[in-house]
Simulated scan of single mutants.
Amino acid sequence: MADTLFIGIIPARYGSTRFPGKPLALINGKPMIQHVWEQSTQAKSLTHVAVATDDQRIVDAVQAFGGKALLTRTDHATGTDRCWEAYQQLQAELSLTTPAYVVNIQGDEPFIDPNQIDELTTILDGVVEIATQCTDVDSAEVLHNPDEVKIALTTQGEALYFSRQPIPFLRGVDPADWHTHYPYFRHVGLYAYRADILEQISHLPPSPLEKAESLEQLRWLEAGFRINVTSTKYIAQSVDSPSDIEKVEQPPTN
């Protein structure tokens, strides 16, 4: 959209429970955060890209490869909250007055495709409050895996609900065959927020639905915010534990 900034922010927390120091883990000889930075800066739509971190070691690493790093507070509960603080820092530093969207890029997806980011920004028209992505569910294994978040959508492409359970329930059909009887969608966790909406959701307290499913986006829906969802063919491999490093050592060929 003309006269709108698209700002990519990569939250990168040092103290991961399962993988401390994860952003600095080496993949093919480079820190993971460098891979994410390099992929993100190839997105044609982003006007600025910055890493938002709680640790000086990550700041130093990002600056060493020529990236932009912002040191944020250590007490942020979510990456969304860290994005808001980082955006405020950028806004003050660069004297930004133009309307903006903030794209929250996962710091543990070293080979995210730049086209995935550009794909999401195409629907950011100034009216959209929050946007994210989904892909088709093609197996019972994915559908019934609680680590894979499913989405129910309106006919206008807005999120009705996110759940770790399959939604909807198909009465009278074997659960192993549900995915062949209904078009289920799996959430792909790339987010974009209109800056004024990001400010508002960063002040929301955790909600009952969020606590029940351990899904932050339910806090926003429960508060009445609208989330537009667009489909994508791009699925980035995330690094959740040291054993995942081997899986991403060779980038995808697509």
Rank of each mutant, 00 (worst) to 15 (best):
T4P: 00
T4I: 09
F6P: 01
F6D: 01
F6A: 04
I7G: 10
I9M: 08
I10W: 01
I10C: 04
Y14M: 05
G15W: 04
G15Y: 03
G15R: 04
S16G: 12
S16F: 00
F19W: 05
P23Y: 05
P23W: 06
L24W: 01
L24D: 06
A25H: 03
Q34E: 15
Q34K: 14
H35V: 04
V36E: 03
E38R: 14
E38M: 14
S40F: 00
Q42H: 03
A43E: 00
K44L: 14
S45T: 15
V49L: 00
V51K: 07
D54K: 01
D54S: 02
D54M: 07
D55S: 07
D55C: 01
Q56M: 13
Q56K: 12
R57S: 11
Q63D: 10
A64F: 01
F65M: 05
G66H: 00
G66N: 02
G67L: 03
K68R: 14
D75R: 08
D81K: 15
Q88K: 12
Q89G: 12
Q89C: 13
L90W: 05
A92D: 12
A92Y: 03
E93Y: 04
T97D: 14
T98R: 13
P99L: 07
Y101K: 01
V102P: 08
V102T: 09
V103W: 05
Q106T: 11
G107S: 06
G107C: 05
E109V: 06
P110V: 11
F111Y: 12
P114W: 00
Q116I: 07
I117W: 00
D118H: 08
D118P: 07
E119P: 00
E119C: 13
T121D: 03
L124H: 03
G126M: 10
V127L: 10
V128S: 10
I130D: 04
A131R: 05
A131W: 07
T132A: 10
Q133M: 15
D138G: 03
A140F: 07
V142S: 15
L143R: 09
P146N: 09
D147K: 15
Q156S: 15
Q156H: 13
E158D: 15
A159Y: 06
S163G: 06
S163N: 06
S163K: 02
R164L: 09
I167G: 11
I167V: 15
P168R: 07
R171L: 14
R171N: 15
G172E: 06
V173A: 10
D174F: 01
P175H: 07
P175M: 07
P175E: 08
D177N: 13
W178T: 04
H179K: 03
T180A: 09
Y182I: 00
Y182T: 00
Y182E: 01
P183K: 07
H187S: 14
H187E: 09
V188T: 11
L190P: 02
L190C: 02
A195E: 15
D196S: 13
I197H: 02
L198W: 08
Q200K: 13
S202P: 09
P205E: 02
P205G: 05
P205H: 03
P206A: 12
P208Y: 10
L209V: 00
L209H: 04
S214L: 15
Q217E: 14
W220S: 05
W220I: 03
A223S: 14
A223P: 07
F225I: 03
N228A: 14
V229P: 10
T230R: 04
K233L: 06
K233A: 12
Y234W: 13
I235Y: 08
A236M: 03
S238W: 08
V239C: 01
S241H: 13
S243D: 11
N254I: 08
